[in-house]
Write a protein that binds this DNA or RNA. Structure first.
Lengths: 203, 203
DNA sequence: ATTTGTATTAACCGTTACGGTCAACAAGGA
DNA sequence: TCCTTGTTGACCGTAACGGTTAATACAAAT
């Protein structure tokens, strides 16, 4: 990893990172070509290798970068500082979309990275991620005020169902290659409001 | 396409087809190696090329085969012959799982094929699929008895939400590489029952 | 104007992977 | 023994890939 990369204009850094996120989110680690990343970011392959000594290093940088930013965004949007489940969902959505405005493919990349099987990186990946997701899931179930929900539904199932739906929604967006954060924010807000209405206890 | 392929023992045909479904569902068309398909199905690459004259032909065979079987399964399980939405969902689930027992990756393949961008096949793909999905979606909305639903929810949103969730669920299964139809059938049944309880009007 | 340092790349290298072919082999029946 | 049928290892030409290097362009310093 070359320090000069960080001395680049932020815009250029982002162009490179985003190209990499995209290529790595579309291909497995092994089949993601460095040349395509260079092309997409408008620099030569040689220069890319000047900034990152090799493929693995670039990949690992992307990974830690993704975790870092995700964590920061969660804090910034005070995602966990509420006991209302749907409010938490919305804040989480806002934080993700804000991240996506800068790094449209960071979410798809993280998902794919987590399940990556290439031996060279597999081990380095899973540990810290498990920490993050488990920790936040714990916090959710500790903090949430359960009295707001309808009594006759199973919270765990609801929780799972909602996250499946969000993933499915995002999947469709990625597959059809249209990542427009504003649109996503709006459509998912509709869904969250829908869930709130459905799952909240009548008063 | 060589007729001899169809004279093979069905078990062997299936082994080849499934290997192909798997490889094509994990890689883009361009990056899916014929050699890997041969290896996975336990035959030589030369023999694979003996049955299918080239990559494209194999791919297109898989595609039409997938559509055919899906359509047949829908009919076989009388998926559309009910006006109860959740019953329809269940039948659809059962038909998919039965298909998955024979062809575990046919679903993932179809999804990926639909969004495939390789120019050689792109055009041949989308037409007929659109027919299928649009047609069945129409039928759904025509046949379903809407009076069973809660009055205060938006049916279209519910419909979308449910399908997102199913896709998200399947995505997770595929990503974690554990396609066990029995398990899927059970877990999705739980989800469908959950939805039925939530979205059905109290009487 | 010349040197020095730095950002950037075209061209290259060795290796591997790929789609596809072909000559040969194995085995069974006539 | 000869044919037929199923099957493959070895091969071919090409393209792609990760990574390197020598050379360029360019600006700042002398």
């Amino acid at each position: 990893m070359n320090d000069k990369f960080f001395k680049l204009p932020l815009e250029k850094q982002r162009r490179i990172i985003n190209a990499a996120y995209k290529v790595f989110s579309e291909n497995s680690y092994k089949k993601a070509p460095m040349s395509e990343i260079a092309d997409r970011s408008g620099i030569s392959k040689a220069l890319l290798f000047h900034y990152f000594t090799n493929k693995k290093e670039l990949y690992m940088y992307l990974w830690t970068n993704a975790i870092d930013r995700t964590r920061k965004a969660v804090v910034e949007y005070k995602t966990l500082e509420t006991d209302d489940f749907f409010e938490m969902l919305k804040r989480s959505l806002l934080s993700k979309c804000s991240l996506m405005r800068d790094y449209p493919h960071i979410y798809a990349f993280s998902l794919r990275a987590y399940y990556e099987t290439a031996p060279e990186i597999k081990n380095s990946i899973q540990e810290n991620y498990k920490d993050v997701s488990k920790a936040s899931e714990m916090t959710v179930f500790e903090k949430i005020d359960l009295s707001k929900f309808r009594k006759d539904i199973d919270i765990k199932t609801m929780y799972a169902e909602i996250f499946y739906a969000i993933d499915g929604y995002m999947l469709k967006k990625y597959r059809s290659n249209c990542i427009i954060p504003d649109e996503i924010e709006e459509e998912l807000t509709v869904l969250i409001d829908f869930w709130k209405k459905v799952y909240t206890r009548e008063v």
